[in-house]
Design a protein around this nucleic acid. Structure first.
Lengths: 149, 149
DNA sequence: TTGCTCCTCACGTCACGTGAGGTGGC
DNA sequence: TTGCTCCTCACGTCACGTGAGGTGGC
């Protein structure tokens, strides 16, 4: 029930109001507006934003890709809501299959990214190790061979 | 000794020639050029490009951030080459300390990214699990309670 | 000469950043 | 009325994409 204004949502999410307006412009978010034109965000809007930013920050997807992922899940959720009123079993299987396939593809991409990240982390640690060796050398050279604590 | 032309480097690295020219324009790469104006990339250039792309793809850093990281390490490498001809111990310690500090900050950011990625992966797996449950329901509903294989 | 790759403009695009100038509810 | 937040243009920026039109070595 509690609706938030754009500034509150932006501050909470750590983005600017410009970003929220842009996401609306490209159809990623659809907040309602008051008579005066002020955007009002529901909890659903805020949760959708959280997922958009997760995809953007963790995976670096572009907004078209994010829209595809969210839309696929939205259609599935809508189907589940309508499941009572005759959605054919065949159609239902198709949609879930589609969602599962997209999910599997994205999981693979996440794994690739994890691999890249772990590779880079290993490089960083190797480099830090070498730096500490240089420091040790520098110390012993400065103090002479004896009397190192 | 074997120098590569821009097209060969781009194909090998999986980027366009435009990207390589742009990196030169902003000072991230400095290939030599032949009399005719053709860019020639040494193994060092190619290795530097690999590191640029690693930072970009794994971490999503912008080019200014990437330049800062590469420059810090370049200065350190240059210092090591000059270490014979009187670089003071104090200056040496300062530079290595600086490199170690930057390294530690970047390591922290990598860990944050790993956390984001793992969180998203967990979400994906939970979602896939739910999808498979829906499929199982759909199957048993389609076939009736008995005679499921 | 014909192909292929190279070159330099230079405008286009995506995802916003950043004012300018103005309106609306406590 | 004063503040604060909201609004809509609209131009700027970063990291390239994408032709246009032309040159250079096997």
């Amino acid at each position: 029930m509690s609706r938030l204004r754009i500034g509150e949502v932006a501050a909470q999410a750590g983005v600017t109001t410009r970003t929220l307006r842009y996401y609306q412009e490209v159809g990623l978010l659809s907040p309602e507006t008051t008579a005066g034109g002020t955007r009002m965000y529901t909890e659903n809007d805020v949760e959708r934003l959280r997922r958009i930013l997760e995809l953007r920050e963790a995976m670096g997807f572009d907004l078209d890709r994010i829209r595809l992922i969210l839309d696929t899940e939205d259609r599935l959720a809508q189907m589940r809501a309508e499941v009572q009123r005759g959605v054919s079993m065949k159609r239902r299987r198709e949609m879930v299959d589609e969602a599962l396939e997209l999910n599997a593809r994205v999981q693979e991409e996440v794994q690739v990214r994890r691999g890249l990240l772990d590779g880079y982390l290993a490089e960083l640690k190797a480099k830090a190790h070498r730096y500490r060796e240089i420091l040790a050398e520098t110390d012993s050279a400065a103090k002479g061979a004896r009397r190192t604590r």
